[in-house]
Write a protein that binds this DNA or RNA. Structure first.
Lengths: 132, 132
DNA sequence: GTTCGTGCAAACGGTTTGCAACAAT
DNA sequence: ATTGTTGCAAACCGTTTGCACGAAC
């Protein structure tokens, strides 16, 4: 809790009650929730929380570098609180998104990539989760 | 033209004038247009074409396996007519999406991936296009 | 008291859908 | 005749925005 206040302050974010509640949730889940899903969840412990505040707050967190937007679901952006680089696996049946540790996959450039200044990359996999 | 009619028929699609016009466009561009962009372009040669028909047709093409939906742009789905597997590079400045040949990048699994039945994957890169 | 954050409702933009007119078999 | 396709408009849904109220420095 105290750490979270500190964490927000370090990123230049004024730690209001709403922002704390949202931050607590998004950093405690290992899922990849949409803004509306965050709203639904946090509302249960913070009933007055408005949808607009959730959207604004999540965008603020992204701008300040606390979390990342990911294009992994159709129709909605999802947010990813894991700060270290990783890959993603999407279960085509459930739509669930799994983090794949960075070191599980080796990506090597073999062909010509001149003219492309790659700042960031990730492997996006799709398929079926067999167990779990 | 004749080939396109044939192509559609082979995929179980009745080749109407609208569908032909949309197919001609999407298979001739190397870009990754959104449905609205397809509409704008094809409308110039087919003014009566409605937006709904474009959306319906593109979805039909996806269902029948002619083209692919890609989650590479925020706010809209883009369509990809290239049937062979490839990776993508997104210019963060312009938003332009570039195809990267499959053999340019080697992806090797190093870690544990049990439980994940990977049916499909691609590398998504972001950065700046330096020349063109 | 000025700046910043919140909540509400309205607006917005991409996409889907219901429906009537129409074309194809 | 039946089935499938088109165009229009309305509906839908995720997201942003304008604005008034309220809290914090």
């Amino acid at each position: 809790m105290k750490d979270m206040i500190q964490h927000l302050r370090e990123h230049g974010i004024l730690p209001t009650a709403q922002r704390l509640a949202i931050a607590e949730f998004i950093f405690s889940t290992d899922g990849h929730p949409s803004a509306d899903e965050v709203w639904e969840k946090v509302k249960s412990t913070f009933p007055t929380l408005s949808r607009a505040t959730v959207y604004n707050t999540l965008n603020l967190f992204v701008d300040k570098g606390l979390i990342k937007r990911q294009l992994l679901r159709e129709g909605t952006v999802v947010f990813d609180a894991v700060s270290t680089a990783h890959h993603h696996f999407i279960d085509e049946e459930s739509g669930r998104i799994y983090d794949i540790p960075w070191d599980n996959i080796e990506v090597k450039v073999k062909g010509e990539m001149t003219g492309f200044d790659v700042r960031d990359y990730q492997v996006v996999m799709r398929g079926r989760r067999k167990q779990d």
